[in-house]
Amino acid sequence: MNIALFFQQIANGLAIGSVYAIFALGYTLIFSILGIINFAHGAVFTLGAYFTYTFMGLAFGFNGLLAQQKLPFGLPFPIALVLGGLAAGAIGVLIERAFFRPLRMRGGDSLLTLVSSLGIAVAIVNIIQYLVGAEAYAYPMSALGGLPPSVNFGTPESPLIVRTVQIVIFAVSMIILAGLTYLINATRTGKALRAVAEDATTASLLGINTDRLIMFTFFLSGFVGGIAGTLVGLSVTVTGPYFGIAFGLKGLAVIVLGGLGSIPGAVIGGLVIGLAEALVPSQSSALKEAVAFAILFVILLVRPQGIMGRVQVQKV
């Protein structure tokens, strides 16, 4: 592998790794508050990509209930991206209100919640297929406006070309990460979230409305999931209703690798897996998908709690 190719792969790895990171944060937020893994997160990721596509005013294909339908207006990509994220966040809140909350109120077993979140994921996939068919959708080349398709960071003699999409993905992910980090560490709401994550009963004794914070957490989770879905859709295509399912599994590998419930862990885990995948030589690209899980396996042998995970201490 020559040096230019190597740096290109690093750029790819950082781009995809940063998306893994923000996507995985969606799992982490909910896990740290409720101690459950929301398997519907991958489906919300898919929905985010479709929402953005819709807000751009693009027409759907020939299959499904909404065949050839489109909005009467089209929004520029950056605005559609944010709206897509917000809509995915709203779906997150809906999932919490309609499914998670009723189970929680009845003291349902967390395994029950987990299985129903899988059910929600399947339902969303089917609804998407019913509405817009199973075909792939791509954002138009014009999505990035007047930006050139790639940027040469080298010289004309020894080019070091990075796709503009990768830079956009990395930049947007970093903005989301910075925003979330600020929110959680420096705001009143963030401190309340950390209080609920640590001890929900005590948090409510302090006057924190835990129910509302849980809703907000689902909104945040859906928002980052939806943004991640759009970004991946921009980089490759939106491959159909199952778009987020494999990505969802990858996200699980990321959070387990980073340490369940750890925010820095999700970021490090995302970048590690993204970079590792990017460095798989192209002649063995069939093995790419296995890399994430191989790394996971090796690291968990050495550090069962994940890279940044805390060892659970049971106090008596």
Binding site: R188, K191, A192, R194, A195, E198, D199, T201, T202, A203, L205, L206, G207, I208
Partner: peptide, 22 residues
């Protein structure tokens, strides 16, 4: 509450500020 239930991973100051959450 019984057993104090301080928020162990937050600072003393953040615990106090959360007391004024309302």
């Amino acid at each position: 509450p019984e057993g104090r239930r301080v928020l162990a991973r937050l600072t003393v100051e953040d615990n106090l500020l959360l007391g004024a959450y309302t």
